[in-house]
């Protein structure tokens, strides 16, 4: 079985992003970029499937600027076999990402696609579900456990009320949550080896997909700031302030 893992290059989760002065977006120049943390978990899960003999090839795909090559090299260093970069300088929305991934799937015929539940830049949480719709495949989203079966898989999902386990037919689209696994770090020798693994570069046009945004971003602004408050000296003072100043008790 082939596993497809879409990985997105995003501003590192430790960076406190700043809005650009002209409100056209957030500052990404000279900012540390990394693989979307959820996607690292997806790559790790794919590798574990391969190590367990349940998958034989892992293909990582990224849609983004030329630098997304680095993200793909990270996936290769972790253990992916091959990578495809669909290079574009446009911001590609989830629907268009899903269409491109569908086109890749038509060529690659994976048995499972493992995506992150959410990209931490756009916070959309859409792509996996959209890919499910476009392929007509079932979806298992926000998954914290996967059991591969024969022609189906059982997935435990993190939902508002707790946990839910569902069974979906294979092939399937899966979006992974934080507690599925702990991704490995790539070792130095594997980082060296990854440099020689195949990485194909394509364009959206190669797949005949129109990536023109459907939504126009009018502006990107700073959120309302909260001013820091006071340090109280004791529990008694805290309770007094909550009762008499803030009036919330």
């Amino acid at each position: 079985m082939k596993v497809l893992v879409p990985v997105k290059r995003v501003v590192d989760y430790n960076v406190k992003v700043r809005v650009k002065a002209d409100q056209s977006g957030v500052e990404t120049a000279n900012v540390k970029m990394s693989m979307n943390p959820f996607d690292e978990i997806a790559v790790e899960e794919a590798i574990r499937m391969k190590e367990a003999g349940k998958a034989d090839e892992i293909v990582a795909v990224s849609i983004g600027a030329a630098q997304a090559q680095e993200t793909l090299r990270t996936a290769l260093a972790m253990g992916a076999d091959r990578a495809i970069l669909i290079e574009t300088d446009e911001l590609v929305e989830p629907l268009a990402v899903a269409k491109l991934l569908k086109a890749v799937m038509d060529e690659e015929n994976p048995g499972i696609v493992l995506l992150g539940k959410q990209a931490i830049d756009d916070d959309s949480n859409q792509t996996a579900q959209m890919l499910g719709a476009l392929t007509g495949w079932p979806q298992a989203t926000f998954v914290s456990n996967i059991e591969l079966g024969d022609g189906s898989l059982e997935a435990t999902r993190e939902v508002d009320s707790g946990l839910e386990t569902i069974k979906v037919n294979m092939p399937a689209v899966v979006s992974v949550d934080l507690r599925l696994n702990e991704p490995r770090y790539a070792s130095l020798p594997n980082i060296m080896k990854a440099k020689k693994k195949p990485l194909d570069t394509k364009s959206a046009a190669d797949y005949g997909v129109d990536v023109t945004p459907r939504l126009k971003t009018i502006k990107v602004a700073e959120p309302e700031a909260r001013s820091g408050g006071v340090i109280v000296g004791s529990v008694a003072e805290l309770v007094d302030k909550l009762k008499n100043e803030a009036k919330v008790l």
Binding site: L95, D123, N125, Q126, T127, Q129, L134, Q139, R157, D160
Partner: peptide, 23 residues
């Protein structure tokens, strides 16, 4: 934007060829 709608609505959007607006 509950987990149930987050699961279902993007599937609806793609079936309708629409870019969803989240949260």
């Amino acid at each position: 934007a509950t987990t149930s709608a987050k699961n279902t609505m993007p599937r609806v959007a793609a079936l309708l060829d629409v870019q969803q607006i989240s949260e």
